[in-house]
Design a protein around this nucleic acid. Sequence first.
DNA 1: ACACCAGGTGGACGACATCGACCGGGCGCT
DNA 2: AGCGCCCGGTCGATGTCGTCCACCTGGTGT
Lengths: 144, 144
Amino acid sequence: MDDIDRALVRNLQEDAGRSYAALGAAVGLSAGAAHERVRKLRERGVIRRTTVEVDPAAVGSGVLAYVMVDANAWMGDSAAAFAAIAEIQEAHVIAGSASVLVKVRTATTEQLQDVLRRLYAIDGVSGTQATVVLETFFERPVPL
Amino acid sequence: MDDIDRALVRNLQEDAGRSYAALGAAVGLSAGAAHERVRKLRERGVIRRTTVEVDPAAVGSGVLAYVMVDANAWMGDSAAAFAAIAEIQEAHVIAGSASVLVKVRTATTEQLQDVLRRLYAIDGVSGTQATVVLETFFERPVPL
DNA sequence: ACACCAGGTGGACGACATCGACCGGGCGCT
DNA sequence: AGCGCCCGGTCGATGTCGTCCACCTGGTGT
């Protein structure tokens, strides 16, 4: 994981469709060498997968909210219960007054309310506090 | 934006490296037709870009925190000020007691503290409340 | 000083993206 | 209702690119 690897990852974050020849040229390597390094980055799990960034509003998820979930029980083993709610994009166990922080995307605020209802149905959940996003300044890849 | 488009996007979210032939087969179309639909999805901005998902811990961003930023002024035009802090991965204007919610990734808690210091330096920022993530259950693509 | 090896180069081969010519079915117009 | 237009599809040709391999080189440890 040297500077060249970091440059490769940065390039792929910008555009994963870039050719290995272009990738190599960008970091001063041949196409074959660039290919080999990227292969190893995948193998090591540094690169998890190559995916596509979607405009949430265009696919019917115009409403974004963060929900602090309070609990009266140990939530460490409840990942599956949160994953079962399709509208939840992220779920984290947090330090602080609440127990879990989830990121929710829905089409409407009514559907957001429905997600809150389903959150309450999870074992151990004692309360929620939703924060609705008014405007997203930016969302960008993991920093290097 | 019909069911076929949704299926295509779902497939590309899973693996953007999939061939157009495989993509077409998955939705009952020829490679050419699949290619054309994906091209239009990009053109329309439904697909913003094709990128690579990176393991944050592997690139020196093992600490994740959400920070509620309080302000005593209108923050609507301050996107650039937040974008200038490289460790900030997301920044949203929110409804509620705080003004802005930011997602921060750093290597250490010391660096997190430094980010908080730089947040205070932004015009209009009057306070911060950081929530450190202990464990991430999951992070997944925008739901369809 | 020598041998080993991780990591790089360049070329060959096959697969895949990309484009164009052609086709069919749905919709609006007369 | 009939006609023609056009969006969106299939199929096939072409060139680029990913992928693999054989060979090379510079650094490291004994």
